[in-house]
Design a protein around this nucleic acid. Structure first.
Lengths: 230, 230
DNA sequence: CATTAGCGCTACAGTTTTGTGACGGCGCTC
DNA sequence: GAGCGCCGTCACAAAACTGTAGCGCTAATG
């Protein structure tokens, strides 16, 4: 699915503004009001990028950075720091706070988007990629098209997102619950078996009789996308 | 491919802003932070247009101009100069710096795009098309005319802008909200479903019974202009 | 070999999304 | 001020998609 951004900002107006605009730009957004909350959410949700204000109640922005870095699961999550003019110390300029980039308030949304994209591209190539290929399967996320060996594949919205997510992490096995969280959203409740049905539909759309099924069923564990290995 | 623009700007915020917006408009963008870097990149990449700040560290904007002009490979590359108000000397006005146009900061992106198109049109007709063609559909942005297979198509202003925007980014899927922002303007409020109605009108005007509909509906995502694939 | 949990597949009823004709409003021209 | 073209919204029908249940098969388990 789309990149997931965690916004850590205590000033309510700015937080809402960020959330609104990021969502509009196509990001999935969570928001935390202070550093403590941020650390908990970061652990639970493993965002693709964290946007954190320098000045925060309870745990400061730098401290959030440091702790994110020190934890195994979040050590490599890219971080962009928000600072007000004047807070722009040498320490921030040098980015030895652990952040990957910083931006000075006030900033335009466009500029922020540009930075986010740049950082994502740098840290996680493939995440911001428009076209994903695996074997003879091509997925164009901008054109919303899937092709297999010159053949146009029509997918419903859910199957499209499902394939997108699986191709994003090839080889990795996901449980039905994980897939529901990632593809359907963590807030909806649907039966786990529903995943089976959509995997089935995806397979039917994707494969002809001659072709190898790229989706592997791992009994009592889940599914994974594997184009190479058997 | 799309025109390649080299941005030469030392101020980071403006550089990212330019890069982001140019990319979004469909240009391929490289960025250089100073004049020295710019000259190297210009030589390596042979851009279709150079956007250069007047004030630069190491080698000034004028100097960049001069050197680009003096080199065989880059002698004919169009150049647009960025100046701050006050730097707007007679020399810039007369453009005897070697630049083809200049623009005074602060400027709107729309204005910049217009200048870029104008310069490309003048210097390199064919790169900035006034006339966009896709399949048997021809759109003349200057004469405000649309033809399909020798048949004159009459469109209302909104449908014209809509088709223009879609054809400008063929293959790409836009949500109703994005289309509203781009075609109607980000400040007006209209129902998202209004886009459907205009797409419907556009289709009716564009297609006869025999012809393939160039506008693709992507369920729960939006619309895109696609003349080839499908 | 019998048992059983897990999975593939189909059918279907319910829901969401899209296409489209109709309508009233607004601005412009004659 | 009547006529015309264009616009935005609504309402309804059609189409596409979704989730769940159920049945039969298969692979593990003992």
């Amino acid at each position: 699915m789309n990149p997931h951004v965690l916004v850590v900002e205590d000033e309510d107006a700015l937080a809402t503004l960020l959330q609104y605009n990021l969502e509009k730009e196509g990001y999935q957004v969570s928001a935390a009001g202070d550093g403590e909350e941020a650390l908990i959410m970061a652990e639970e949700e493993t965002p693709d990028l964290v946007l954190v204000d320098w000045m925060l109640p309870k745990v400061s922005g730098i401290e959030v950075c440091r702790r994110l870095r020190s934890r195994q699961e979040t050590a490599n999550v890219p971080i962009i720091m928000l600072t007000a003019r004047g807070e722009e110390t040498d320490r921030v300029r040098g980015l030895d706070t652990g952040a990957d980039d910083y931006i000075v308030k006030p900033f335009s949304m466009t500029e922020l988007f540009a930075r986010i994209r740049a950082v994502l591209r740098r840290i996680r190539p493939g995440l911001a990629e428009d076209v994903i290929k695996a074997g003879d399967i091509t997925m164009d996320r901008v054109a919303h098209r899937v092709k297999r060996a010159e053949r146009e594949i029509h997918l419903g919205p859910t199957e499209f997102r499902l394939l997108d997510y699986l191709m994003q992490h090839p080889g990795r096995v996901f449980s039905r619950e994980q897939l529901l969280d990632a593809v359907w959203g963590s807030d909806v409740y649907v039966e786990a078996r529903t995943v089976d049905v959509h995997v089935g539909r995806l397979r039917k759309a994707l494969n002809t009789k001659e072709e190898r099924d790229p989706i592997r069923t791992v009994r009592s564990a889940g599914y994974s996308f594997d184009v190479s290995g058997g």
